[in-house]
């Protein structure tokens, strides 16, 4: 039996009076890629942000239910900084810091107190290698990260997340701003990273969900309509609403 990384039980989330998530129950397994799909406003990004408590930054948000991460409810008495170290996030638009490629990776570990230059060098190299970027940037580590292409910037952001040695990587439409070649590199990267990390990705691309994920959850109006093995979802979904959405007939 695969180890459960996140176990969400009866999670409700409200933005003021608006209920954005309704009784979410989902178990996310370790070392798998899980894709969240659904129309805009269905709650998939909201739920993704729940997993490292990014919604804490929004005042009007109220939550009920539990999200068990390993053994602990992340909405209980836990260290949020530590949670966000263990559950990293990559956003839709690449957002490198306005500093060198090297410093982008080293910034987080330095903030956590790592000062040893040799250890930092090793960490930078390892992270960039894991993010399949090392060969492309090894000769210009001290150049600004803002000079990289969009696809390289996004891989840099993934490397920056990896440098914090997380257990889970959340990705919110990480390739929607990238061309097909850069997208293919990120997708290859996800497949190679899942042996070390649990990956959860929000995507609007059905083909991408089909290509890269082990399991897919279909969200609609704040609920999970269907959650199953990805090949099952894309060849023979159980729910007609899932079928209507993935075949593009959802109106």
């Amino acid at each position: 039996m695969d180890k459960i990384k996140f176990d969400t039980k009866s999670l409700d989330l409200f933005y003021g009076d608006f209920q954005a998530l309704k009784s979410i129950n989902i178990k996310i397994c370790e070392n798998e890629v899980t894709a969240f799909i659904g129309p805009s406003g269905c709650g998939k990004s909201t739920f993704l942000r729940c997993l490292n408590r990014m919604n804490d930054l929004i005042d009007s948000v109220k939550m009920k239910g539990e999200i068990i991460f390993d053994d602990k409810d992340i909405n209980g008495d836990i260290d949020v900084i530590n949670l966000r170290t263990r559950v990293g996030m990559v956003f839709q638009k690449p957002n490198p810091f306005p500093m060198s490629i090297y410093d982008n990776i080293a910034y987080g570990p330095k903030c956590q107190g790592l000062k040893d230059k040799r250890k930092l060098d090793t960490l930078v190299k390892e992270s960039l290698t894991k993010a399949a970027l090392w060969e492309e940037v090894k000769d210009r580590l001290n150049k600004s990260a803002l000079g990289l292409s969009g696809g390289q910037q996004q891989r840099l952001c993934i490397a920056r997340t990896i440098a914090m040695n997380p257990e889970v990587i959340l990705m919110d439409e990480p390739t929607s701003a990238l061309d097909p070649i850069a997208t293919a590199k990120i997708e290859d990267l996800m497949s190679s990273l899942k042996k070390d990390y649990t990956i959860i990705i929000v995507t609007h691309s059905m083909q991408q969900a089909g290509r890269i994920s082990d399991k897919t959850a279909f969200f609609l109006m704040g609920e999970i309509v269907e959650f199953d093995e990805t090949p099952k979802i894309f060849t023979n979904p159980n729910d007609k609403r899932t079928e209507d959405y993935i075949t593009g007939r959802f109106g």
Partner: peptide, 9 residues
């Protein structure tokens, strides 16, 4: 068209 589900079948 990237058919899936029943369309693909």
């Amino acid at each position: 068209q990237g058919p899936v589900a029943t369309d693909l079948r």
